[in-house]
Amino acid sequence: MSTLKDNIAKMIRHLPEDSTLEDIQYHLYVLEKIRKGQESIKDGKGISNEEAKVRLSKWITK
């Protein structure tokens, strides 16, 4: 299992050389949101794909 530090180091290695501090901050923000989402799912707080589709269908028009 990767540590948070490992994940951040990997993320930084994959960013373009001309990345700004804002780019790095944004990617750190996204990593944290993903980590929190995974933690919520593990704790049984997630929703099913079907429920997600119902919720999104209210916003998405074809």
Rank of each mutant, 00 (worst) to 15 (best):
I24V: 15
T3A: 14
K5N: 10
S57E: 11
I47F: 11
N49L: 13
G44I: 07
I8N: 04
P16T: 00
N49P: 09
I60L: 14
K10Y: 05
M11L: 15
R13E: 09
K36N: 12
E39T: 06
V30G: 02
E50M: 10
V54F: 06
E22N: 13
L31A: 13
A52Q: 11
M11Y: 03
I60H: 03
D43P: 01
K33N: 13
K33W: 05
R13W: 05
H27C: 15
R13I: 02
V54K: 15
L56Y: 03
I24G: 03
K42W: 05
S57F: 05
T3P: 04
K33A: 15
L56Q: 10
A52H: 10
I47S: 07
I34R: 07
K53P: 00
L4V: 11
E50F: 11
E51H: 11
K33C: 10
H14K: 15
G37W: 01
S40T: 08
E39C: 03
R13G: 02
E51D: 09
Y29L: 12
V54S: 08
K42D: 10
L21P: 04
N7W: 03
K53D: 11
P16Y: 00
N7F: 04
K42N: 13
L15W: 00
I8Y: 07
I34C: 08
I34P: 01
E51F: 07
E39W: 02
I34K: 08
I12F: 02
S57M: 12
L4K: 13
S57W: 04
S2C: 03
Y26F: 10
H14E: 15
N7L: 15
G46H: 05
D6L: 05
D6A: 13
K42M: 09
I12A: 01
Q25V: 06
E50N: 12
I47G: 05
K62N: 09
G44R: 09
S48V: 06
K36A: 14
R55N: 09
L31M: 14
A9R: 10
I8V: 02
R35D: 02
K10Q: 13
G37V: 02
T61F: 06
Y26G: 07
W59R: 10
I8R: 06
L28P: 04
M11F: 06
I47N: 06
V30P: 04
I34Y: 05
P16R: 11
A9I: 01
E17L: 02
R55D: 03
G44C: 07
S48E: 10
H27Q: 14
M11D: 01
Q38Y: 01
A52I: 10
T3V: 12
N49F: 12
T3D: 13
L56F: 05
Q25E: 15
E17G: 01
M1E: 08
S19D: 07
I12L: 00
K62I: 12
I12T: 00
Y26L: 14
L21D: 12
K45N: 11
G37L: 05
I60N: 04
E17C: 01
M11I: 06
S40D: 15
W59K: 04
I12M: 02
K10L: 01
L4R: 10
P16E: 04
K33P: 04
L28H: 06
K36R: 09
I34T: 07
K58F: 05
I12E: 01
M1N: 14
E32F: 09
D23L: 09
K36Y: 02
S48Y: 11
K45V: 07
L28S: 09
D23T: 14
E39N: 07
S40K: 14
Q38L: 14
S40L: 11
L15E: 02
E50R: 08
S19E: 00
